[in-house]
Amino acid sequence: MKNNKFVFAVLFPIFVLVIVFLVLPLIYGLGISFFEYNPLRQTNPFVGLSNYAKLFRDDVFIKATTNTLFFVFVTVTINIIFTLTLAQFITTIHSNKIRSFFRTVYFLPCVAPMVVAATVWGGNIYSTRYGILNTILSSMGMPRVNFIGDANLVMYCLIIFTVWVDFGYNTVLFSAGLDSIPTQFDEAGKIDGAGPFQRFIYITFPLLRRTFVFVTIMTIISHFQMFVQFMVLAQRGGPNNASTVLTFYVYKLAFINKDMGYASAVAFVLFIIIMVVTLIQRRLNRIDWGY
């Protein structure tokens, strides 16, 4: 169809918003990263690439980057294996009602604000004094453990929390993916005498590959952007930056240390990482996964 007036009338305001709030911030952010930028000051000197040079000398940045990569890799791996298993289990149930019951319950943490979950886990689960884990430990006569306060443990605590808070999402996606696979494939496998595990590996999984790739990549991208648990549950990236990740570090640099130029440089690195993952996804998507 054609109607330039109508197209223009709609697209003009839309693109004003897109440019100002989606495109401009990226360019603006890149620009700021070349300045020593504190908007409170009248003058902000141009420093060229020195914010980027600083990255390599900054222990906290290096720590934040490795923390981020470790967190994303481990969490996503556990998440995918766990949710795929759960989804497979759920499909074996015949009753529609029970199936949707489990999906609904599992989805609850995805619906509730994450800051609520983070607060509850920090207070009621991990806390040394009134956390349920320590109550159990001490009732078994074992010494109490400071889960959040121990630099060696805090990241694992965050990973467990994140898997818990986010697994419902992928379970629903995978289980929808499994439901859309025609049952005759599985039946054929049964007739050929394949066990349930074999059928999953050789029949179901290849058919699910498209959903699998989509879900994995989206999960990776969303995990790079997580912020709340590092701020609320892990108490501001501590102890000793053991749980500082890139998103939190950007926030801290910009809004606590007042160094918006350097914060933008760190943000740009995070952008590059996410960009690379996205491009890999688009490449993989182009492959024909047809049955």
Partner: peptide, 8 residues
């Protein structure tokens, strides 16, 4: 993602 552009 918005986390990348929070400053600008």
């Amino acid at each position: 993602p918005s986390q990348v552009t929070m400053v600008p």
